[in-house]
Design a protein around this nucleic acid. Structure first.
Length: 221
DNA sequence: GCGACAG
DNA sequence: ATCTTGTCGC
């Protein structure tokens, strides 16, 4: 699975913001014919006290959620962590890992926000636009926006709003646990994103895709 | 000027 | 994210 769109990565924070403002015009928040056979998850971890970025991607079959393929890529960390610019720090390694897949997933769940971002262009949207593929943002904490507390049952959710628009939802993936922040990444609707995240979360707080990718990305064996 | 701030 | 052991609770 290779990116269909390319652009420079050695940018200054100001240049990165300018690029986000341009690329965000390409984000598609509508559904497309989707036949879910394989779902992927991506996550990133760090080694050597942060000097090395380690990206992991796993592909599971759907709806069984059995591991079909996995890949890892390491690259020297070259961009600092700046809230709002996470994709410039993590995507280079993620793209390299994705290139090693033989199976092309139908949708990718990302550890981080989609359009629930100050400029509506979080890591999930950035990845989706580069691949021209459906992606979903699943964050463990909030980057921006306001919301009420969702009901305490699995599947309960509350809208995440910012600047008068709904940018995502706060979704309870399991009864009694801290909810996650779900937003559109690219090429699907928020309703579909919620449905897919719940279908990928049979037992734990986080979707199986992201859980397994996280295990691969941050375990220094 | 004072907070907030994905991973 | 990462540095780090045990411990509280179901």
């Amino acid at each position: 699975m290779r990116p269909v769109l390319d652009h420079p990565w050695n940018l200054s924070p100001a240049e990165a913001i300018a690029l986000q403002l341009d690329l965000r015009k390409r984000v598609d928040c509508t559904d497309h014919p989707l036949r879910l056979g394989h779902v992927a998850g991506i996550d990133v971890g760090f080694e050597d006290g942060g000097r090395t970025t380690r990206a992991a991607v796993v592909v599971l079959d759907y709806p069984g959620l059995r591991l079909v393929e996995q890949a890892v890529a390491r690259r020297p960390t070259d961009f600092p962590y700046v809230p709002g610019l996470l994709s410039f720090r993590e995507l280079p390694a993620v793209l390299e890992a994705l290139t090693r897949l033989t199976v092309v997933p139908d949708v990718i769940l990302c550890d981080g926000q989609g359009i629930a971002h100050p400029r509506r262009f979080g890591i999930a949207s950035h990845l989706g636009v580069l691949l021209d593929a459906p992606t979903i943002g699943v964050g463990k904490t909030r980057l921006c926006g306001r919301h009420e507390e969702p009901g305490n049952e699995k599947g309960a959710w509350a809208p995440l709003q910012d600047g008068g628009e709904i940018i995502g939802v706060v979704l309870r993936t399991r009864a009694g646990v801290k909810p996650v922040y779900v937003s559109i990444g690219h090429k699907l609707s928020l309703t579909s994103a919620i449905r897919i995240v719940l279908a990928c979360t049979p037992r734990y707080r986080l979707p199986e895709t992201i859980r397994q990718a996280h295990r691969l990305a941050s375990q220094t064996n």
